[in-house]
Every structure is written in structure tokens, then in C-alpha cells.
Amino acid sequence: MILSPFEYHAPTTIDEALRLLSDYGDDSRILAGGQSLIPLLKLNLVEVGHIVDIKHIPELSSIGLEADPEGREMLRVGALTRHSDLERSEIVRKAVPLLAETAAGIGHQMVRNRGTIGGSLAHSDPSADLCTASIALDAAINTVSAGGKKRTVKAGEFFEGPLSNCLSADELIESVTFPSTGPGSGHSIKKFTLGTGDFPIVVVCALATVRDGRLAAIAISIGGVGGTPLRLKDAEQALLSAASPETPDIGTITGKAASSLVIEDDPRVSAPYKRKLAATLLRRSVAEAIGKAGGIS
């Protein structure tokens, strides 16, 4: 039960929303799908004077393809795109299949029908599926703030800590862009939860590209083990420059990556067990991504 009253605003344009955010600053919260904010309000963990519901701004809902300055195909999804939209969209499934698969595995149907990508990124839970996937996918987060000032932040630089990111109080996520996954690519998302629909204890995403039987590119991210989801650049590099490129020893490399993670106590599982989970999921995920990419010959 929400006990503290607030003023509810439902702007219909981005400008109007930005004006409200800039007027009320820290005393305001953006409401999108509400799958995190409403529970926080009901637990009376968040008390705020103004709620700015952005769901009536049509520009924030769209899914489309475009080309970046270098001519590469990019997928752009509006901040209000719901998880179930990502899951069902033919465009998303074809252009960035890891995104569609990630969305399909979030929470449960009712959460997916309501939760949005902008909301999930802005909430910045370090174990959230979409936050972790966005890092592996090199997503770019496009924001706009008071006065119409726009900027683009790479997902890898967006998250700053548990439930914290680089957005300012008067800034709004407008859309998120993802490079389309090219041919010869394979992806994998593996997660471990204690209950169906729970936030993951550990979640791992991998995206691999194989050309001529050799690993040409790989991106690996992990969520749930630190203050933010992490990209595992060392492991990626090790896989790419393995002594015998035909058969990189995935288990050893991902095992090393897992043992170098800083893992803190979690009330749900012990740190050593969490590290074991990380090692297992990393190995399985990387192997699956490479396998789906056609495998290394």
C-alpha cells in the first residue's frame, strides 16, 4: 500500500516531460512500465513528490532499423518498448536475436507485458537480464535532457553501481540502439535463478562471430556479481588470441575469468558457490555462442 501522496503527471510530449523533470528535480521519478517503481512505492522505499508517467509520449514507442555513419545496420528501439514487444518483434528477432531471447526470459508474462527497456536500463539492477545483454551487445543509450540536449552513452559506461547510472535527474532515455548481429554470429544467454521469475543470481551473455572456422569476435558480459554488469574483456582477448586458435580452451579461459571476479557475499548464496556458478555459466554460454556461430573448425 502506497502511503505517501505524490502528484501524478502524464505529459504527452518529451518537452513537457523534460520541463516537469527539470522543475521537480530529485523530488520526481519517471514512471514507465512501473515494474520496479510501483513495488518500491508500495514498500514505501521510495517517497517522492512527483511521478512523471511518460507512457503517453508516442515518440518513445518504436522499433526500427537504421544505418550508422559507417553504414552499419543498427536496431533502434524506443525507451517504452516492452519486453514482450522485443520478444515478439520480427525485426528484433532477426536483427539482434540475443535481445529478443533475453526479453523472452525476463520475469513472467505479466512483467514482460508491462516492463520497458528504458525502465529496465534506468533502474540499473546489476543482475538484470537486459542490462547485462546491453553490455555484450555494445548498446548505445540515447538520452535527452532539459532544453532538448541529447547525448549517447555506451552501455558499458552507463552503469555506475547498484541501481545507479549516469543519468541526471532531468534526463530521459529516449531510445537504445544496438548494432545488428552479422552473419556468422551466435549468441547465448544463461542464467541461474533460485525461483522462476526471480532476478538472476548470475546471468551471462555471449555473442561470438566465426569466420572461416576461426573465432573473429566475441563479447562476454556477466551480471549479478558486482555493482554493475561487467564486460569480460580479458577473457574475450584470451579467446581471440589463444595459442591454438583452432581450439581455444574455453573452460580454462572462462574459469580464469570467473576466478578473477570480485564476488561479495549474497544473502541467497555463498560467494564460493556464486563463483562456481559464474564459471559454469561462462563456460556454457561461450561454448554455446561459438557453437551457434558455426563452431571453430
Binding site: Y8, G34, I38, S84, Q109, M110, V111, N113, R114
Partner: peptide
């Protein structure tokens, strides 16, 4: 708290938890 689903309704055709929205 948006976990059990007993409050589900169709909102513009899609099931949502009516306890988790205003």
C-alpha cells in the same frame, strides 16, 4: 507484490498484474 498473478487483467489485450499499476 506482482508475484502470484491472481490479480491479472487484460490491459489493452495483454495480461498485466493489476496490483502492480496505479
Amino acid at each position: 507484490e506482482g508475484v502470484c498473478g491472481a490479480c491479472s487483467i487484460l490491459l489493452d489485450g495483454r495480461a498485466v498484474c493489476s496490483c502492480s499499476m496505479l
